[in-house]
């Protein structure tokens, strides 16, 4: 038996990473287009209950590799195991959700297989018979189309949020679990996992904030942060920031919003001089009302904002501050 579309599940301590379901949704939609079935593969140690859980996720099969060498995630372990799974199952497509873990091992797997990986795709589309994968370049400013030629396995990772896990099709029969017994003897694990931990608790808990004014690199220099603080004061809002603003030390790290910062969902989110890179958006897209101020009309932030102002922020912000003060 072999699989057509193989989705790689991501888990930590037996808990499924929700973005795996997004990849399954991608697999299901793709499967419909191509008339192919979807299977999941989970790696780890003692993951039988996870495997059980996965059977209800609308896949035909759940493959598992259960091995001591996979008890902690390591790139050697994952790439070594998946290489064998893929060789054995020969899927046409191998799909991943583009998580930080996938970033870490999928390229290695690709190299082992000598099969290119299209990473961080935002969607796919059909162009005639050709399946076109779309990924962003230049930090979301431009889209690029890619296709595969020849037989699989073709490796594709999808951006987190590119597919909606709510669209998961679970009506069909439960999938069957199939344990794969691979020989992991030849897989040498060179990295030793010492610890997995949550970073120091943030001093500022932005997730509780009602209103947030977030500033991005568009403020140009640390000196201009002050004007943004005035805006925040006028709105009664907390300050947030995109990553580069924190990296440069213009605001402390605990103000960072995004995939590696805090995830926030205030009633009101001002994104000032923020382009709207995916890593920022995942941290704030569930905000109630989003206001974006950016001088570039093509900035991706306008895709998710409710109100947009295309202008020089230095012209607009002082006026917004005085308008707020007046009202």
């Amino acid at each position: 038996m072999s699989v057509d579309i193989l989705v790689v599940a991501e888990q930590r301590d037996g808990v499924l990473n929700r973005s795996t379901l997004e990849a399954v949704v991608a697999g299901q939609e793709l499967g419909k287009q191509l008339g192919k079935e979807v299977a999941l593969v989970a790696l780890g140690k003692g993951i039988s209950s996870l495997a059980e859980e996965l059977t209800s996720k609308g896949v035909k099969e759940v493959l598992t590799v259960d091995d001591d060498k996979l008890s902690d995630y390591t790139p050697d372990g994952y790439a070594g195991a998946l290489q064998q799974v893929i060789a054995a199952e020969n899927p046409a497509y191998v799909l991943f959700s583009h998580t930080y873990t996938v970033r870490d091992y999928a390229p290695k797997l690709a190299m082992k297989l000598e099969r290119p990986l299209v990473s961080d795709c935002v969607r796919y589309k059909m162009d005639g018979n050709a399946l076109v994968f779309v990924r962003q370049v230049f930090q979301g400013k431009i889209d690029a189309d890619f296709t595969f030629e020849g037989d699989g396995p073709h490796l594709v990772s999808f951006q987190v949020g590119a597919f909606n896990a709510d669209n998961l099709e679970t009506s069909g029969a439960a999938g069957a679990v199939r344990n794969l017994s691979l020989s992991m003897d030849n897989v040498e694990i060179r990295t030793k996992v010492l610890d997995v931990f949550e970073g120091v608790k943030q001093e500022v808990d932005l997730s509780k904030a009602d209103r947030i004014v977030s500033v991005g690199r568009g403020v140009k220099k640390s000196e201009n942060i002050e004007m943004m603080k005035d805006l925040a004061a006028a709105l009664g809002a907390e300050m947030g920031a995109s990553r580069p603003v924190c990296d440069d030390g213009w605001l402390p790290l605990d103000r960072q919003v995004g995939s590696s910062g805090q995830t926030v969902a205030p009633k009101l989110y001002f994104a000032v001089g923020i382009s709207g890179a995916i890593q920022h958006i995942v941290g704030m897209k569930n905000s109630g009302t989003i206001v974006a101020i950016n001088k570039d009309p093509h900035a991706p932030i306008f895709d998710i904002a409710d109100y947009g102002i295309v202008a020089d922020l230095f012209e607009v912000i002082p006026e917004v501050i005085s308008a707020l003060k007046e009202s």
Partner: peptide
């Protein structure tokens, strides 16, 4: 086996309501 085809400016999915006029 991977072919790059083209670059293009992304089509907008949902657009914000854009406010226009002078800053004030």
């Amino acid at each position: 086996s991977l072919k790059f085809h083209k670059l293009y400016v992304p089509e907008k999915t949902k657009q914000a309501e854009l406010l226009e006029g002078d800053p004030k």
